[in-house]
Write a protein that binds this DNA or RNA. Structure first.
Length: 679
RNA sequence: GGCGGGAUAGCUCAGCUGGUUAGAGCGCAUGAUUCAUAAUCAUGAGGUCCGGGGUUCAAGUCCCCGUCCCGCUACCA
């Protein structure tokens, strides 16, 4: 475990280039990765911090189609937006590439080819939908139709967004091609699969035995997957946006985006360092660390390592620190619902306050469980911690020096015991911050760094130089010298966390060096050195500012509710005879209970006027079974029976679906005889 | 339902392989102080460690049963 590494490759999940970056991404991946990379650099370790945009995949092509532009236009737009906002925010990538680059295409292609030549893939043909008009196979997202579960229109081939079901394209009723609108036909197509099952044995050993130190969520999820047994995964798709499968007879096929994206880490390295990139990826004394969100655990811990191992010449990750999710004001962050704090907007609305957001998102990082970001917490942490503790100490030390010594670092006399105890505390904090950072505990590490400022405030309160100034100037000189040394130390300690503030602080101190190993030293500023005028390192954030942000979110929410409250268009007319075929009846609920081993199903015993029948209905999340007993419901009585969870359902209970997805059972306005027809 | 993660002071979280009166920051109360962005410092009040069993001399920490939250997954005629 205590392996010595010569260099470290740090990767952070590639953001998908079909939308901007929000605080969830920052808290989960980019800020911790950046802190880690900056820390290693400060320690003069060799480190390479890799980022880049993920620019392939179906959602981008769909978005392009919708907007009437090319996929390239989409990725160009968001790649630039994301790249610029990361840069402005101080995420210190050594390189930020993109998966549409030539280097990436070549490398990914070559990677695939190597595995292909080594026989690491399975080839398999299957039937898939094909659009004869557009002359192309259709990816799952390109097929729409009626959802077989909730019967709403507009379900996609992989998922119905209305009821949330996961679908496969051949389940859709009346499938239509999203490209031409024509009815697609099934055609045989060949694809390549990575047989993960073949890699199971070593993965099991490597993760479950050799990496017990991985975070519980990461380890647990891997174990869960391994215990369920791994299945082969397709690595190609029929699509024209992506990296062509480099095999004869594979025209019209591209690498599946999850296969090409992680290779992006490697190709971005190669693009930056064409001659030496391999040492960052193939040398046993390189430590590889992937920073990701919890949705990416399986890819980075199982699939990507399997790819690397299959290729044969690459190292495997040493750790995969993965964060949970960040919520916003109590609700899940959602791009489609516009429920987010977007980085590019934050940068515009809070100019110069990068570090405030960095601080808050680290202090409240979802390292062990989902956390909630609130604007009030943002304000409190800024005003009560950054301003009151850190900024204030810096300001006190500088102002006092200007007042009593005209802005020059005063001479340090003999230290008394209290001085030395204070400095010892400092050294202890340094060791603790290091230990925490090396264990990927960024939240605690930052808190520990903040303790340095607390020590400083206490030191000033206890020594009271403003009183001694009347009687003992040499002692005041010593106290302020030490205080200023502490301030200089803060500039180093906070460099990984709050780089902008550290830079400003160094400017105020005229401090040229910044080296982690100097942390804890008391000669960072030499006697007589001139200080610049004190500026406020952080400023208070007023209530009005916070209220405006909260209002902005509330407005968003309202706008969304209105946007969602749009009734669906009426379907095509049907013949009256078709209506007559439906036999809708009223029944009285005699019994109702939850179906065992199913979360959404209720089992009804219904009096239909003639006899009793059993009906299963997926409304368990909206009704307690006992509340329905004795009620009358409407149901379709002449559907063929269908077995669900081993129970035969003889009909379908009618419910209305509200805008928020909740269900309301349809019941007659007054009591009628069971078996009454609904016309 | 299965699997994984979580549940500890008002809030956000620490508590390693079980061991003295369960900790930190913020908030709150009281006092001190004025160099400082009404900042700081000290002290204090706050906890059936989700509930119930069990193992043990000893359990927040281990085992079993259950509840709630998050994720993946199954079911939704």
């Amino acid at each position: 475990m205590e392996k010595q590494f010569k260099r470290t490759t740090v990767t952070s999940a590639l953001p998908y280039a079909n939308g901007p970056v929000h605080i969830g991404h920052l808290a989960g991946v980019y800020i911790p990765a950046d802190i880690y990379a900056r820390y290693l650099r400060l320690k003069k370790h060799d480190v390479l911090f890799i980022g880049g945009s993920d620019e392939h995949g179906v959602p981008i092509t769909i978005r392009a189609k919708k907007e009437g532009v090319t996929p390239q236009d989409i990725v160009d737009r968001y790649h630039q937006l994301i790249k610029d906002s990361f840069e402005e925010f101080g995420i210190s990538f050594d390189t930020y590439g993109r998966t549409t680059s030539k280097v990436h295409h070549d490398l990914a292609s070559q990677f695939f080819r190597t595995l292909y030549d080594k026989g690491e893939f399975l080839e398999q043909s299957s039937l898939q939908y094909y659009d004869e008009e557009a002359k192309t196979f259709l990816a799952d997202r390109y097929i729409t139709g009626e959802c077989p579960r909730c019967h709403s229109e507009g379900a996609y081939g992989d998922q119905c967004e209305k009821c949330g079901s996961t679908l496969s394209p051949d389940e859709l009723i009346n499938p239509k091609s999203a490209i031409s609108g024509s009815q697609p036909v099934q055609r045989e197509t060949k694809h390549w699969y990575l047989p993960l099952d073949k890699h199971e044995a070593w993965l099991r050993r490597w993760i479950l035995e050799d990496h017990k130190e991985w975070r519980p969520n990461v380890y647990g999820q891997c174990k869960s997957w391994l215990d369920m047994g791994l299945q082969p995964r397709a690595v190609s798709r029929d699509l024209d946006w992506g990296i062509p499968v480099p095999v004869e007879g594979a025209e019209g096929k591209v690498l599946y985006v999850w296969f090409d994206a992680p290779i992006g880490y490697i190709s971005n390295t190669k693009e930056l360092l064409p001659d030496t990139w391999e040492q960052w990826w193939k040398s046993e004394d390189t430590r590889l660390v992937h920073f990701i969100g919890k949705d990416n655990i399986v890819f980075h811990c199982i699939v990507f390592p399997a790819m690397l191992k299959a290729e044969g010449s690459y190292i495997l990750p040493e750790n995969v620190p993965s964060n949970e999710f960040l919520n916003l004001e109590g609700d899940k962050i959602s791009t489609s619902r516009n429920w987010a704090v977007w980085l590019h907007e934050y940068l515009r609305e809070f100019p110069g306050k990068q570090d405030v957001l960095r601080y808050v998102l680290t202090a409240n990082a979802p390292e062990t469980k989902d956390n909630d970001f609130t604007w009030k917490d943002f304000q409190a942490r800024n005003n009560n911690e950054l301003v009151a503790v850190y900024g204030n100490f810096v300001n006190r030390a500088l102002v006092l020096t200007h007042k009593y010594f005209d802005g020059a670092v005063p001479a340090c006399g003999t230290l008394n015991e209290y001085d030395e105890a204070t400095l010892r505390e400092f050294a202890e904090v340094k060791a603790e911050v290091e230990r925490l950072l090396e264990n990927y505990k960024f939240r605690d590490a930052q808190k520990e760094a903040m303790n340095l400022a607390r020590i400083g405030n206490k030191y000033l309160a206890d020594t009271e130089p403003w009183k001694l100034a009347k009687t003992d100037m040499p002692r005041v000189a010593t106290i302020l010298n030490i205080s200023l040394q502490l301030v200089a130390n803060l500039a180093i300690a906070f460099e990984p966390f709050l780089p902008f503030s550290s830079a400003r602080l160094r400017g105020m101190l005229n401090m040229s060096t910044c080296d982690w190993e100097q942390l804890g030293k008391t000669d960072l500023l030499s006697e007589g050195a001139r200080l610049n005028p004190a500026e406020l390192l952080f400023e208070k954030i007023e209530d009005a500012t916070i209220e405006a942000q909260i209002q902005k979110l509330l407005d968003t929410k309202k706008a969304n509710e209105e946007a969602n409250y749009k009734a669906k268009p009426i379907r095509e007319n049907i013949a009256f005879d078709d209506f007559l075929k439906l036999d809708i009846r009223v029944g009285t609920v005699l019994e109702c209970q939850k179906v065992p081993k199913a979360d959404k199903l209720l089992q009804f015993r219904i009096d239909d006027g003639l006899e009793q029948r059993t009906i299963i209905s997926g409304i368990a999340q909206h009704y307690a079974p006992e509340d329905l007993v004795g009620k009358q419901v409407c149901f379709i009585a002449n559907l063929p029976p269908r077995t669900l969870k081993g129970i035969t359902s003889e009909g379908m209970i009618l419910s209305a679906e509200n805008a928020d997805g909740s269900l309301a059972v349809i019941t007659p306005e007054k009591l009628v005889k069971p078996g009454s027809e609904v016309k």
